[in-house]
Design a protein around this nucleic acid. Structure first.
Length: 473
RNA sequence: GCCGCCUUAGCUCAGUAGGUUAGAGCGCUUGAUUGUGGAUCAAGAGGUCCCCCGUUCGAACCGGGGAGGCGGUACCA
């Protein structure tokens, strides 16, 4: 008989223990920030119709690569959501008339992307988003960014560890106009913007190659360039290196307005004390056929290492921006909207590389030494639970040594022992594994080992609950 | 998708310029302790040397193909 191999599909993490506890705490703290700004939770399903997500391949009757899709029994295509914004757009369009304006909601959930996993990058991960719809620039944008910063801080990211990089799609439209590239020309405009996006990593020279003929990277991969002229390339680079975005647009409407909008956002944030956290950065591009105004992302300022200690390219841990056209796909009418998203799974990975998670203590383990006394052991466990102490009775017929090993492996702080001796004497032995662990550092002979019983005490059976809670306190 | 590296015990990794019984450390099990985890000592279990095809008297090792993992790059809502 052919047995299946026990294996996990790649990019789908198994998760347990302290990581999960930390994630739940993180989510609750971020949600708390969102709620404090007046956002209320909305839950939508994991699946949406593929056309509602806008993920059919152009001119083909099949869903785009990158999303997990399947056909329902009526042959309609469904896809797992790849973010929380597309489902929001569907929800708002579907309930347009019933919703207050502005409509503010947050959402927490798992999203799925069918693409190659990388360091800190999974095919299944958690996002927590907040969005305001029917909310025009620039004040809604300033508020979202402010809240985004608060959320990251609540998630445990130190001020010095993160930087909010801000740019604007309208400014980019202006730039393209000025250098003579039609912003509507998806192919060229897209290539130019994607090249700019790589400025951090490749520097001016690398970007120049991508704007011109193309570039072959160190691994030998070749990327086709935008084929701009030298003059245009120079303009783009000068824009990227310049400090004042507005300068670049003498009389260009989109560019000038975009830059003014950014200035208003920055000055609002500065007035509220967030100015030092935000930096204008023309290399922030984000979703090309998605955002229409300001865009921003949170970049970590420390190196992320993998388990082998190698420093690894690590993307942003959250992002957001203005998408005035997303809901128009359904209703034909622009709905000015802006939102942010924290990539919780990725943020956890990054923080884990910085400091290991503390494993919490396991439950108190009550040894099961005498078969006939099982009810007594369960009663003792109940008594502890009644005081809010997590407790379990050992199950399975192993000897005392094996039970102790089990308690150790579980990370139990205390073991409760009632064997024949204790029972006859009306007593309970409590052993503190933590104390023993410490003492073991200094023990190196077998004699010492068998004689000492560190952290062990025997109390009357009426007092054992109190003795346990005192030790745990 | 493209490029590179890697794949030997549960884990981390040695290994022989093709030769019979493939190793270490850690972990695991058992014992030293007939009622005590973690230190120490001893013993033991555990392997299709990623898979397939080929070369060879003989392949974990050489050649070809494939799969998987890792990293980079492309794409990324």
């Amino acid at each position: 008989m052919q047995r299946p191999k026990a294996r996990k599909p790649r990019g789908f993490p198994d998760r347990s223990g302290a990581e999960l506890v930390t994630e739940r705490l993180m989510l609750e703290r971020i949600a708390g920030v969102y709620r404090s700004y007046g956002f209320a939770e909305l839950q939508t399903p994991a699946f949406e119709y593929t056309d509602a997500l806008g993920k059919f391949l152009p001119d083909v009757d099949r869903p785009n690569a990158g999303v997990f899709s399947l056909q329902d029994d009526d042959e309609q295509w469904l896809s797992l959501r790849y973010d929380l914004t597309a489902p929001l757009a569907r929800y708002v369009a579907e309930n347009m008339d019933a919703l207050p304006r502005p409509y503010r909601r947050y959402a927490v959930g798992t999203v799925w992307r069918n693409e190659k996993p990388g360091p800190g990058r999974f095919r299944e991960f958690t996002q927590i988003d907040a969005d305001a719809c029917f909310a025009p620039a620039p004040h809604a944008d300033a508020e979202i960014i402010m809240m985004f910063i608060d959320a990251l801080k609540a998630a445990g990211v130190e001020d010095s560890d993160v930087e909010i990089r801000l740019s604007s799609r309208r400014v980019m439209t202006g730039l393209l106009d000025v250098i003579g590239v039609d912003p509507e020309d998806q192919a060229t405009a897209g290539t130019v913007l994607r090249a700019m996006d790589k400025y951090d990593r490749l520097g001016a020279d690398g970007v120049a190659l991508l704007l011109g003929e193309g570039r072959k990277d160190d691994s030998g991969d070749y990327t086709e360039g935008a084929k701009l002229e030298a003059r245009q390339i120079d303009q783009v680079l000068r824009f990227m290196e310049g400090s004042d975005m507005a300068d670049a647009f003498a009389g260009n409407q989109a560019g000038t307005e975009g830059a003014e909008e950014l200035q208003k956002i920055v000055s609002t944030l500065t007035e509220l004390g967030y100015g030092n956290r935000v930096k204008l950065d023309p290399s922030v591009i984000r979703g090309l056929d998605y955002y229409t105004g300001p865009v921003f992302e949170a970049a970590l300022t420390f190196d992320v290492e993998n388990e082998k200690g190698q420093v690894v390219q690590f993307g942003s841990v959250g992002s957001g921006g203005r998408y005035d056209g997303l809901i128009a796909r359904f209703k034909g009418q622009d709905v000015p909207s802006v939102g942010c998203s924290v990539g919780v799974s990725r943020l956890l990975t990054a923080l884990a590389s910085k400091a290991a998670f503390e494993e919490a203590d396991g439950p108190v383990v009550i040894l099961a030494l005498e078969e006939a006394e099982m009810p007594r052991y369960h009663r003792m466990a109940q008594a502890l639970r009644g005081e809010g102490v997590a407790a379990e009775v050992y199950l399975g017929g192993a000897g005392m040594k094996a039970q102790m090993r089990y308690a150790d492996k579980r990370g139990a702080s205390l073991v409760v022992i009632v064997g024949e001796d204790e029972r006859k004497a009306g007593q309970v032995t409590i052993k503190d594994l933590r104390a023993g662990k410490e003492a073991s550092q200094n023990i190196d002979s077998r004699e010492q080992w068998t004689e000492e019983r560190p952290g062990q005490e025997t109390v009357g059976e009426g007092n054992f609950v109190e003795a346990v809670t005192t030790r745990l306190a």
